Amino acid sequence: MSAGSDQQSIRCMVAKVGLDGHDRGAHVIARAFRDAGFEVIYSGLHKGPEEIVQAAVQEDVDVLGISILSGAHDTLVPKIMDGLEEYGAKEDTLVLVGGVIPEEDRQPLRDDGVAAIFGPGTSIEETIEFVRENVPQR
């Protein structure tokens, strides 16, 4: 693996969408991403899909990690994907979803452009490695 000094910093946004107030996992992943050398922006709690899209576009992030445990992933995540598409940012943004996502709901999210879904028990190292291997080259 190459040294971090010769590669541009990976800009990530960790976002909490909707009324989900469980943010421990989002904080853990944000800290792990920072420790891995990524630039990290945390959205804060209770953001709407439009707010997340606008922040991701304004911050020109490479990676958008959506943390959702509320069960509303099947409506909120597609709204974020649609918003990224409207801004022309869908192709340039690696979108990840973290949370308790039932198996039957995963493929529709992938079909909508979500690159990966990480459930409980996923190792931090696996997530970081996935980002490094799949971040869009700009």
Rank of each mutant, 00 (worst) to 15 (best):
78 P>R: 05
82 D>V: 04
59 E>L: 07
138 R>G: 10
36 A>E: 08
38 F>D: 00
69 L>A: 02
51 E>R: 10
66 I>C: 12
7 Q>K: 12
58 Q>V: 08
50 E>H: 13
67 S>N: 13
51 E>I: 05
117 I>D: 01
96 L>Y: 00
83 G>K: 04
125 E>F: 07
103 E>K: 15
60 D>C: 02
48 G>H: 06
122 T>S: 15
72 A>R: 06
38 F>C: 13
85 E>Y: 09
41 I>V: 13
133 E>M: 03
64 L>V: 13
29 I>N: 02
138 R>M: 09
17 V>N: 04
41 I>T: 06
12 C>S: 15
22 H>T: 03
30 A>G: 05
25 G>D: 12
108 P>G: 14
71 G>L: 03
30 A>P: 00
117 I>R: 01
32 A>K: 04
72 A>E: 11
89 A>Q: 11
10 I>F: 14
133 E>W: 02
91 E>W: 05
41 I>S: 06
23 D>K: 04
78 P>E: 14
113 G>H: 15
104 E>F: 12
136 P>M: 07
40 V>A: 00
66 I>G: 04
78 P>W: 05
75 T>Y: 09
39 E>L: 06
87 Y>K: 08
15 A>E: 10
38 F>M: 09
135 V>H: 03
126 E>N: 11
22 H>Q: 06
15 A>R: 04
56 A>K: 02
97 V>A: 02
87 Y>T: 08
76 L>M: 12
94 L>Y: 08
33 F>G: 03
83 G>H: 05
64 L>G: 11
65 G>Q: 08
133 E>P: 01
116 A>G: 08
22 H>N: 04
42 Y>N: 09
64 L>Q: 12
74 D>C: 06
46 H>W: 11
106 R>I: 14
102 P>M: 14
12 C>P: 02
85 E>M: 08
45 L>S: 09
58 Q>I: 09
63 V>T: 02
65 G>S: 15
